[in-house]
Nucleic acid binder design. Sequence first.
DNA 1: TTGCTGACCGACG
DNA 2: CCGTCGGCCAGCA
Length: 117
Amino acid sequence: MDHSFFQSVYSVVRLIPYGRVTSYGAIAEYLGTRGSARMVGWAMNACHTQAENVPAHRVVNRNGMLTGKRHFGAPGTMEQLLKSEGIDVKDDQVVDFEKHFWNPLIELRMMSLRGTQ
DNA sequence: TTGCTGACCGACG
DNA sequence: CCGTCGGCCAGCA
């Protein structure tokens, strides 16, 4: 188990529930490194090295745009994965983004206060 | 060691 | 509603 920034990013990404999405910036802010959203993206770029699966398709930019789609092998893979979870995508953009948005800062804090969920 | 690069973001004109 | 720019900082050549 290593304590690198990348590992922390992967841990948060794995906590994103099925059918929900979050943003690079939200993850960076949750980790206390606000403004380092690019590092989160960089971590995603290397996420394939992880043995355990990382649901990187649930991470989009702050506008709900699928900016990382070209890193999934085939161009349509990310969109396909999201649609299979009930998230509609149009023009590389998540439809009703706010409705599906999962903010780790809020959700994980609630979880720790209420004690699991 | 230096100097790019980048799956971002907010500010500015 | 555009485009551009600076900050962010871990890898890599």
